[in-house]
Design a binder for these strands. Sequence first.
DNA 1: ATTACTAGGTCGCGAGTAG
DNA 2: TCTACTCGCGACCTAGTAA
Lengths: 229, 229
Amino acid sequence: MVLIKKEDSLSFDEYGALKTLARIKKKHGSIRLSSSELGEMLLASQQTASRLLIKMEERGFIKRVLTGKKQNITLEEKGINALYEEMAELSDLLGIMENFSISGTVSSGLGEGRYYVSKKPYVVQFSEKLGIIPYPGTLNVKILSEDESKLRMLRANEGILIEGFESDDRTYGDVKAFGCRIKNVECAAIFPYRSVYKDIIEIISSEYLREKLSLNDGDLVKIDFTIRN
Amino acid sequence: MVLIKKEDSLSFDEYGALKTLARIKKKHGSIRLSSSELGEMLLASQQTASRLLIKMEERGFIKRVLTGKKQNITLEEKGINALYEEMAELSDLLGIMENFSISGTVSSGLGEGRYYVSKKPYVVQFSEKLGIIPYPGTLNVKILSEDESKLRMLRANEGILIEGFESDDRTYGDVKAFGCRIKNVECAAIFPYRSVYKDIIEIISSEYLREKLSLNDGDLVKIDFTIRN
DNA sequence: ATTACTAGGTCGCGAGTAG
DNA sequence: TCTACTCGCGACCTAGTAA
């Protein structure tokens, strides 16, 4: 049986192994073990652990460096994400973290945001799906390091899909949006669907937030999210 | 392979099925389906779904009532708990919810709490493991319904074990404690290890909290937790 | 020591089917 | 229709072992 096998999702074995590796990383900072050690932790044989590691590396969840005696293992983005996705699913299912906030400091610098608020196909969808006619500019918030895991979990949620499109010169990708509030002003956090993790959140709003909320670079802001799937 | 098979823990299949059932319950309020419907959702056969349901009922995760055409399924405490435990594990692993708070109203009424703060073997451990020499009385807080899922998740964490003991007249069970703060006063939430879920938290503290914080029945209090395993 | 291949055995899934 | 049994086959685990 292949239960709930969404493409690219983890098998049970992989999930268990990934959790074990994450636990080691949390405790020791890095992961260095032999296949028999892993096998022992998983209550499985050395061979099974070895096979698992190979499969997980093939599938891009981890990276390995064999150093004769042990293996140095690093969790790849995809592997970490898989855990956050599981977490997001459970959180949704159990109704935990329906409300939470992420804090960071206002920063300047242009991400992809300028496209989102200027290209019409995006703007139309923001209006329809979020009720936001974006002010032509995004507010960039650099997330406090202690809130980064919350950001990762947020991004692991489904969110509201803003579809990408093609134009003459280039392709504009899908975007994932989450409604949020800063000091009770409605806004939305937007993330490119396919992009590596960054510690920056780009916020769009119908208002010019910097002016409306008197924000300057370096100011601390709290972004309040309400997740409802 | 039987990966990470703590006694009584879920198999992958059971975990997946439980999540699916929980999702249905969240959406429809109750669970009513046939084994083939469940099989379809799990991308497995009717037979497998049937076997799973039987096994899960045997193991006490769910209860079933067969009504000819479909089955009415309810999630048992043990099943719900299993999901919260998984959530707690992931949350710990990923460093989410290291800090959170649960709110409720001050209520009177005596739970088991009076034993915890009066029986010496408990008191000794509170002192050693928590640094709290408990005031002889507990503060009972009735949790707001919207925070109940947080309470369940809290209880699914390991916590600090306060061991039970035997006395002449009866047995005093193990207790699970979590350090917390109310308005920056250090205290601890304590739960009998083996007990059904209640929406009451019993708080112990070195101080007489009602006086120290001028609390009366019905007052709203916020309990701040910091989880570190 | 390691990793990881091959071979063989076991476990569990799903087809068929009874009630 | 349902549930749930039997049973054959395939998947996957471990033992043995090479490198």
